[in-house]
Simulated scan of single mutants.
Amino acid sequence: MKIGINTAIYESQVQAGATQLECLKTLVTRFDVSAVEVRGEFFKPETRSAELLAISQLCEEQHWDLYYSVPEELFSSDGYNASLVTNLELATKYHIKSLKYSFGVQPTLQAHDLEALTQLLATTSIQVTIENQPNANGDLATFESDVAWVKSQKLTLGYTFDSGNWYWIDQQPEPAFAALKSAITVFHLKDIKDQTTVMLGQGATDWHSLLGQLSPEIPVFLEYNIAAADLSGQIDLVKQALS
């Protein structure tokens, strides 16, 4: 099973002025990871292209899969987000394996829009996933309905399960995982205590059980602020749970 790093682990460094590229370089030769996920909101617009190119080259050198977290909703009541087209082009250019959006709300799609979206998703090798949101759009009943809607429209969308987001809407991740397990293609791992993200093993999440139920091909990303001194230990805990 692949262990990945979402650059949310570097939130403190990014806020202090570091780039995602600079942060990811610190992983080289020090940590056993298979994938990295960069965050769209962490890029500066004027330097994003150059930084993404360098990150793509770094991933190729290190044999890491590259994922991209888009800080936008895929659907609104009017249809699908036009940024999907440009982001798929960006993903192709920079060898990004997967794009992650949040769902938004179920749209009313005209026949030609549904046909265009179906064609767009069916003719790309880029995986597009939707993630449960920590708001009313992401409660379990709503999200189950959204997943069923995607299936009914025959859209090739995956699902990124975030174990932490359920707590912000006063729901437990374990029953949500049981209900959505068959749709999961990416897993974002957090441990939570009193609606605060803590280091693995310090919270209330039964994350060992969740990881034990994942299919081996599903990547597991650490996605919470981690001090540099704690990163090795956090990765080791995930490796032990997956072994």
Rank of each mutant, 00 (worst) to 15 (best):
L231G: 15
P134M: 10
T86C: 03
Q20W: 06
V238Y: 10
E72W: 01
T160K: 06
T205E: 01
F143I: 10
S76Q: 08
H95I: 03
G17M: 06
D170M: 04
A204M: 09
Q240P: 10
Y159F: 15
E223W: 01
S125E: 11
Q171K: 12
V238S: 08
Q13A: 13
A122E: 15
Q57M: 05
L52I: 10
W168K: 06
T156I: 11
K44S: 13
W168G: 04
L200P: 00
Q110G: 11
E174R: 02
T160H: 08
A178V: 12
K93A: 15
T7P: 10
L109Y: 14
T86V: 09
V128N: 01
D162G: 02
L121Y: 13
A82G: 02
L231K: 05
L88T: 12
L237A: 15
K193L: 15
L140N: 14
L90E: 11
Q106S: 08
F177Y: 04
A176C: 08
C59Y: 04
N81K: 02
Q57V: 06
D230M: 05
T108G: 10
N132F: 07
S125F: 13
L189K: 01
V128I: 13
D113G: 04
D162W: 00
A35S: 14
V198D: 03
N81S: 12
P45A: 14
R48T: 12
T129E: 07
A54D: 10
